[in-house]
Design a binder for these strands. Structure first.
Lengths: 178, 178
DNA sequence: TATTGTTATACTCTATAACTATA
DNA sequence: TATAGTTATAGAGTATAACAATA
């Protein structure tokens, strides 16, 4: 179990060697994740906030206007971080802060036309990054891998949703109490 | 492509929705990685340096005494960070800094008996974490998933070994030049 | 009184530079 | 001169606390 940083699996020889069958999940997971993260970060380099900035664009574009706090909760970032992030995105002209008609404290985040165009371009770049990372698998294997990974992820996310199931709850009828 | 942070895939409805077939590799990868990282970090909580500390133990135990600089390169951490890390590990009695007989500048890092025992315990905990994360797959699927992941990882690591293939080169005969 | 968003501050992690002791 | 390791310092990224406006 090389955990998640070291390069090269290394031939195991010495003392408390890892179990043989379960070879290095952590290592593999770490390598693949970082590889994708790096490729993605490179693809998103010119977006303010990088991956975070992209997420704001993608979410607001796909799901419509969002309040800052909801956005922060959904993306798993602190609300103070969201402020800085949106400052940069707004400065670059990718999103707008609009007053919420039903709550004058809140601001609704919407992507600008330029933001939508940028997003479209970023999606393409990310697709390329994905294909690049999974390049060692053929079509069929890639499909299987994705399917299994997706299943593991959905389960993992259900067990441990970043931290904000509560925030999401108000989008559905509240069945948790009474 | 929900990238790698947001919780819950969310139903896609709006504008520039992600491509339908390649559903959210980044998101899934991120979720699974963080889930494992979190579980592993919890399992390694009482080890100085957490995952890093574990890696030092695992590497020096499996591959024998290592000089600090080599260890740092192999684990992908800065040499200054390695100093702090080893300070803590040595203070806790898990490793020793021994003088290198062939170079009085260098120190060889070796695990103590206590370090080896601790390592043994940690390996068990990490195995549990692994089984936990992959819990949604049955035996056969787990095997396939591991195999595919491993292949992707090995390729990814070859393309982009953390950054220090050069440092590793002196352990083999240098065939890269001449 | 509680909540949205902002600002200022502090903390953590990591990297950079300067230093020593050896080579 | 270059290298192994240490130390001090500075930088990014993130979280905490106090604040203004509104509910």
């Amino acid at each position: 179990m090389g955990f998640m940083t070291s390069s090269v699996p290394e031939s195991r020889g010495g003392g408390a060697t890892a179990t043989s069958v379960e070879a290095d999940l952590g290592w593999a997971l770490g390598v693949v994740f970082r590889r994708y993260a790096k490729a993605a970060a490179a693809a998103l380099d010119d977006v303010p906030g990088g991956p975070r900035g992209y997420q704001v664009l993608a979410t607001t574009n796909a799901e419509g206007p969002k309040r800052q706090l909801d956005l922060a909760a959904q993306l798993g970032v602190d609300r103070t971080v969201m402020t800085y992030l949106l400052d940069d995105l707004e400065k670059t002209g990718l999103v707008l802060r609009q007053p919420d008609p039903v709550d004058r404290r809140a601001r609704l985040i919407v992507p600008t036309d330029q933001g939508k165009e940028t997003l479209c371009d970023l999606e393409r770049r990310l697709s390329a990054a994905e294909r690049d990372v999974l390049g060692s698998l053929d079509e069929g294997e890639r499909l299987i891998f994705r399917m299994l990974l997706q299943r593991v992820a959905v389960k993992a996310d259900a067990v441990d949703p970043i931290q904000n199931a509560c925030e999401l709850a108000d989008e559905t009828i509240d069945i948790t109490e009474t």
